[in-house]
C-alpha cells in the first residue's frame, strides 16, 4: 500500500526549477509507489502558463502510474488570474488545504485502499 507524497513549494519557481520539480517528483512517485501526491502551493504568489502546465503534467504522469494528484492551498488572487489567463487545470484535483487534500485522496482511493495509518513523506522545497 503506497504512501502519499507531500510537496510544499515555498518559493516562486523559475522555469528550469519547475522542470526539476516535475522530474524529481515523478521519480519519487515511481520509487515509493505512492498512490497520492499533494502539492501545496499556498506560498506561491504567481502561477503562469508554464507553472500551470507543470502542475497538469505532474497530474497526468502520476495518473499513468496510478497515483492521484491534488493541488492544495491556491491563493484567491492566483485562482482569479489563472481563470482570466484561460487555464483551468482540467484533470487536476484541488483542495483548500493539506488536510482537505488528504481527505479527498482518501475518498478517491477509499474503495480500493485499506486505510491503515496514513503515511506521509515530506519533501523539502528545492533550491538546487
Amino acid at each position: 500500500m503506497g504512501p502519499f507524497l507531500l510537496v510544499t513549494i515555498q518559493i516562486d519557481l523559475y522555469d528550469r526549477l519547475a522542470l526539476t520539480l516535475e522530474n524529481d517528483l515523478i521519480n519519487m512517485v515511481s520509487q515509493t509507489g505512492a498512490r497520492g501526491v499533494l502539492i501545496d502551493i499556498s506560498a506561491v504568489s504567481i502561477v503562469d502558463s508554464f507553472m500551470g502546465r507543470i502542475l497538469g503534467n505532474i497530474a497526468s504522469m502520476s495518473r499513468i502510474m496510478d497515483a492521484e494528484t491534488v493541488v492544495v492551498g491556491m491563493q484567491p488572487a492566483v485562482a482569479i488570474t489563472l481563470v482570466e489567463l484561460g487555464l483551468t487545470l482540467q484533470g487536476v484535483y484541488t483542495a483548500l488545504n493539506v488536510e482537505k487534500g488528504m481527505e479527498l485522496l482518501n475518498t478517491k482511493l477509499g474503495d480500493n485502499l485499506e486505510l491503515d495509518d496514513d503515511e506521509e513523506e515530506d519533501q523539502d522545497d528545492r533550491n538546487d
Binding site: I46, D48, F50, A77
Partner: peptide
C-alpha cells in the same frame, strides 16, 4: 490591489518568457 498585482506580474512573466 493584490489581485491586480498578480494579474500584471503573471502577464509580465509570460512576456518575459
Amino acid at each position: 490591489s493584490l489581485v491586480n498585482q498578480t494579474k500584471l506580474i503573471t502577464a509580465a512573466s509570460e512576456l518575459v518568457r
